[in-house]
Amino acid sequence: MLAFIIQRALQAALVMVVMSMIVFLGVYAVGNPVDIVIPPDATIAMREEVIRRLGLDLPLWKQYGIFAWNLLQGDFGRSFIYNMPVLELIGGRLPATLELVLISILFATVTGVSLGIYAGVNPESRIAKLIMGLSILGFSVPSFWVGLILILTFAVHFGIFPAGGRGETVMVFGVEWSFLTANGLSHIVLPALNLALFKMAMMIRLARAGTREAMLSDTVKFARAAGISEATILRRHVLKLISIPIITVFGLELGSTLAFAVVTETIFSWPGVGKLIIDSITVLDRPVMVAYLVLTAFVFVMINFTVDLVFALIDPRIRSGRQKS
C-alpha cells in the first residue's frame, strides 16, 4: 500500500509541475495587463516603473522561475488590480463557492443515485421512464438557460426565492457561511439547483446502468435464493457493486463543479471564486488568473489521488494490480 501511495504521489507532483508551466505560459500569452493597470495619460517613465514593479520586464523563463519558487513557499503573488495577496483574495471568496458546490453535488448525488436505483430496479414502470426522460433533459439543456428560467419562474413570477446574491451570513470559526441562516439558505436554493441538474442527470444514468447490471449478478441471485429482502439486497449488495463508478464520478464532478461554477455564479451574482475569475479575466489580472487555474489543477489532482486511494481500500485487486504493473 505504501508503494502505491508513493507512486501516485509522484505522479501527482509531476502533473502539477507540467500544469503550472502550461498555465503560466497560457496566461502570459493573453493580452497586456499594463494597458489596463496604467492610465492612458501616463508618461513613459511611469509606464516603465509599473512594468518593472510588476516584474513584466524580466524574461519569461525568469518570471516563471520566480513564480514557481514563490509557489513552493505558498505565495501566489499580489493582484495587479486589488493590490493584495492573491491567496488572501481567493480565500475570501472560496467559502461562498465551497458551500454552493458542496450543497449542489451532495443533492445531485443523493437524489440522482436514489432515482437511478429505482429506475434500475423498476425499468418498465412509468415513473422510471419519466426519470430517464428528465435525465435526458438535464443533459441537453444549457445551464445558463436553466438558470434564467429558474430566476424568471421562482424569483420573478412566484417571488419564492431571491434572484441573486448570497443573503445573510453567520460567522463560524472565522468564516462566513450563508446556508446556516434562513435568508442565506433561500438565496442558495436556485443556484445550487441550477448547478446540480446536470450532475444529477449523470448520476441517474450511471446508477441505473450499474443497478441493472448488478441485479443480474450471481451475488444478487444467491442473496434472493437465501431469502434476503429486496431492500437489504439493494443496501448491502447493489450499492456496494455500483460504488466504484459512483465514487469516481463523484470525485471528478466535485472538482469540475468547483472549477466551472463560473456560469452559475455569474447568473445569480453569487460572490464566489467563479465570479472573481471572470472579473480578473476582464481586467487581465494575471496573478489571480494563474492562481485560480493552478489551484483548480491541484484540486483535480488531489481528488483523483484520493479516489485512487479509496479504490485501493475498497478493492484490493486494484492496489495489487497497479503495484505489479
Rank of each mutant, 00 (worst) to 15 (best):
P245C: 10
G133F: 08
I204L: 04
G274V: 07
L197D: 01
R322E: 14
V294I: 15
M19V: 15
I228R: 12
M1G: 01
F24T: 06
M46C: 05
L152Q: 12
D285N: 04
S125N: 13
L137K: 08
R93P: 03
S325C: 01
V27A: 02
A214Y: 06
I81G: 02
I303G: 03
P59I: 03
T97G: 08
R78I: 02
L216G: 04
A196P: 01
A207W: 02
S79Q: 04
R93K: 15
M21F: 13
L206C: 03
G227R: 07
R52M: 01
R126W: 09
S243T: 12
Q73E: 11
S178I: 03
V34G: 00
L56V: 04
N70E: 08
E88V: 08
R235E: 10
S320T: 14
R53V: 01
T181F: 10
L94N: 12
I267M: 07
I246A: 09
F250N: 02
K62L: 08
G164R: 10
M21K: 00
V50E: 13
S104I: 05
A291S: 14
T111H: 03
F161C: 08
L234H: 00
F144S: 05
D75C: 01
G174M: 06
H157L: 09
V101S: 11
A128D: 06
K240P: 02
V283Q: 09
A259I: 09
S229Y: 14
S325Y: 07
F80S: 03
L195M: 13
A259P: 00
A45H: 07
A259W: 00
V263L: 14
A261N: 14
M215K: 09
S229C: 07
V299L: 13
D75E: 08
V34E: 07
V23G: 10
I44W: 10
I278E: 10
I22C: 12
N83H: 14
R322H: 13
R319V: 12
V175F: 11
I6L: 12
M1W: 14
F222S: 05
F161Y: 14
D308L: 03
T169N: 05
L100M: 15
L14G: 03
Q323G: 00
R47P: 01
A3L: 12
L71V: 04
L102N: 07
I277P: 02
T109Y: 05
L206A: 05
M215H: 05
E265V: 02
M302W: 12
R286T: 08
D315L: 03
S229D: 15
V101D: 04
V262I: 15
L252Q: 15
Y82L: 11
P59S: 02
F4H: 14
V283T: 11
G26L: 06
R319E: 15
V18N: 13
G227M: 04
W177L: 06
I149D: 01
E88Y: 00
A209I: 01
L241R: 11
M215R: 05
T264E: 08
F260L: 06
A291I: 04
I267Y: 04
R224V: 00
A223H: 00
V170A: 13
L87V: 06
Y82V: 10
V172T: 12
P316Y: 13
P39D: 08
E168W: 01
V30A: 09
V301C: 06
R235H: 11
I136K: 06
V101P: 05
M215Q: 11
K199T: 13
A182C: 00
P162T: 12
F158I: 05
I103D: 11
L254W: 09
